[in-house]
């Protein structure tokens, strides 16, 4: 298993380099110039050119990237052009929010998706058809619209949950939990049905196999046959979908954080891109990529746990 993990981590290094390089190159094509946006570059043309030079923006893109990479390898992600704060501090300040959303989505999607999928496979009928309808509905209703509906119902009408904002878990675990419910649901509703459908298909196939009949014949309880043996054998393709759902949820944080006014990495990345704050954008991209790598690694490790043949 350790070899598997090391191998996956080594494979991730080119990915990190490619993503950060691509971000630098794409940003160089984007309209806007941070030196013209910053107040100190706006007093005169001379001040603007001096600021461009100071920030290294007059250098070739590859040279700029090389400097960034060299500093990043030494643990220095630079400072934000706008706030003047260290990029690492800004990212760490917001990492918890995004991770809270992603983990929340994981818990809701996996628990609801597996439960609904298994029920659908075992009972069929109305549960299966409902899942099919919800799948189509989930695709038809965009998440930002779902988010606004959730706010209107649960925050404005019922007043059960906050419409916007985030409370740190250290300030108040209760308020932290409540601030996450609607954002997590807005993202998760879209994905629960994907996991449920995959679980249903895989479970349906596994439950018809000979070894299931053998287990039942050996006198094992039905609960044990279904949840311990059936679900574990059906889990391999489901885990793949869960991994994809998590990565998709990470992307969704961009709009969820905007609508719910959550101070997470997604909204920070948007602000950095909008302001052409390349140092901050690179940092956010790096963090997002690391989270994706962590998710993929978790999926790979799960494969290994579920199917020992994969470990070698």
């Amino acid at each position: 298993m350790i070899r598997l993990i090391l191998h996956r981590l080594l494979v991730s290094i080119p990915l990190l380099l490619a993503v950060t390089l691509l971000t630098y190159v794409l940003d160089s094509f984007a309209p806007g110039d941070v030196a013209a946006t910053l107040p100190q570059g706006q007093t005169s043309l001379k001040a603007y050119l001096a600021l461009r030079h100071k920030l290294g923006l007059d250098q070739p893109v590859m040279q700029q990237y090389g400097h960034w990479l060299w500093r990043a390898l030494h643990g220095d992600l630079g400072t934000s052009y706008f706030s003047g704060e260290r990029v690492v501090n800004l990212l760490n300040q917001r990492l918890g929010v995004t991770l809270s959303i992603v983990v929340g989505v994981l818990i809701v999607c996996v628990s609801a998706g597996l439960l609904l999928g298994a029920l659908s496979a075992l009972r069929g009928g109305i549960v299966g058809r409902t899942i099919d309808i919800l799948s189509i509905a989930g695709l038809a209703f965009p998440s930002f619209w779902v988010a606004l509906i959730l706010i209107e119902v649960f925050a404005v009408k019922l007043e059960w949950l906050p419409a916007i904002g985030y409370t740190s878990i250290f300030a108040s675990p209760r308020l932290w939990l409540m601030s996450l419910v609607l954002p997590v649901l807005a993202v998760a509703l879209h994905s629960i049905t994907s996991i449920a459908k995959q679980t249903r298909d895989a479970m349906g196939e596994v439950m018809g196999r000979d070894f299931i009949r053998a287990l039942r014949a050996s006198g094992l309880s039905e609960t044990s046959v279904i949840w311990k043996h059936g679900l574990r054998n059906a889990a391999l393709p489901v885990v793949t979908v869960i991994g994809l759902v998590m990565i998709s949820a990470l992307g969704s944080t961009v709009f969820v954080e905007r609508i719910f006014v959550l101070p997470g990495l997604g909204s920070l990345a948007v602000e950095a891109a909008t302001n052409s704050d390349i140092a901050l954008l690179q940092g956010a991209t790096l963090y997002f990529t690391l989270i994706v790598i962590a998710i993929n690694l978790a999926v790979d490790v799960s494969y290994g746990w579920l199917n020992p043949k994969v470990r070698t």
């Binding site: 606004l148 706010i151 209107e152 925050a155 404005v156 007043e159 906050p162 419409a163 916007i164 904002g165 905007r258 609508i259 719910f260 006014v261």
Partner: peptide, 19 residues
């Protein structure tokens, strides 16, 4: 002072009493 770029979310927050 919360920065709320989305006008719909801002109005909802007002209606919910958060702002």
């Amino acid at each position: 002072i919360d920065v709320i770029p989305d006008a719909n979310a801002a109005i909802a927050a007002m209606k919910a009493g958060q702002v």
